[in-house]
Amino acid sequence: MTVITETHLRAEMLKGTLSNPYFISHQHRLTPAARDFLRDRGIKIEVMGSNSIQNIVQTKEWRIPVGVSNRHVHLSPHDVEVLFGKGYELTPYRPLSQPGQFAAEETVTLVGPKGILSRVRVLGPARELTQVEISRTDGFTLGIHPPVRLSGSIEGTPGITLVGKVGSITISQGVIVAKNHVHMSPDDAKEFKVKDGDRLMVQAISDRPVVFPEVVVRVNERFTLDFHIDTDEANAANLRTGDFVKVIGKNGELFRARA
Rank of each mutant, 00 (worst) to 15 (best):
T130E: 11
I160E: 03
G124M: 01
P113Q: 05
H28G: 11
E155Q: 15
G143Q: 10
I134H: 08
P32R: 03
R136G: 08
V216A: 10
N220E: 08
G252C: 02
H181L: 04
N51R: 15
G85N: 03
R240A: 13
P125Q: 01
D40Q: 14
A237Q: 11
T5R: 10
A237D: 11
L30C: 07
R199G: 05
Q203V: 08
S25L: 08
R136D: 05
F102C: 00
V57Y: 09
P125V: 01
D40C: 04
L110T: 07
A189R: 07
I176F: 01
V68C: 01
L129N: 15
I134K: 05
K15C: 09
Y93H: 14
R35Y: 00
V177A: 01
N220R: 08
I53M: 08
V177L: 01
F223C: 02
E12G: 04
H26M: 10
T231L: 06
D79W: 13
V3L: 12
V57Q: 14
V217A: 10
V120L: 07
P99H: 00
N55D: 14
E46N: 07
G252I: 01
I154C: 02
A234Q: 03
F140N: 14
D188A: 10
T91S: 11
D188V: 00
E133K: 10
I176P: 04
H78G: 12
T59W: 04
V82M: 06
S69F: 06
H228K: 05
P65H: 05
V132R: 11
R63L: 03
W62L: 11
L110K: 08
P65M: 02
V245W: 02
T141M: 13
T17M: 07
R222N: 15
A237P: 13
D207F: 04
D230R: 07
V80S: 08
H74Y: 06
V57A: 11
R121N: 02
L150Q: 13
G112R: 03
I45D: 04
R256A: 11
N20K: 14
V47A: 13
S69D: 11
T59A: 12
R119S: 14
A234E: 04
D188G: 10
D232C: 04
V202H: 06
I171Q: 05
S151V: 08
I64V: 12
L117A: 04
Q203R: 15
Q27H: 13
T2G: 00
H74A: 08
L75A: 05
A204Q: 01
N20V: 08
V175D: 04
P77F: 02
N180L: 09
Y22I: 07
I229L: 13
P158L: 05
I248T: 08
N55V: 11
V210R: 09
D243M: 09
H8P: 00
D188P: 01
S69M: 02
V175G: 00
V217H: 02
T109Q: 12
R199K: 14
R258A: 12
R208D: 03
L150N: 14
V177I: 13
F37K: 05
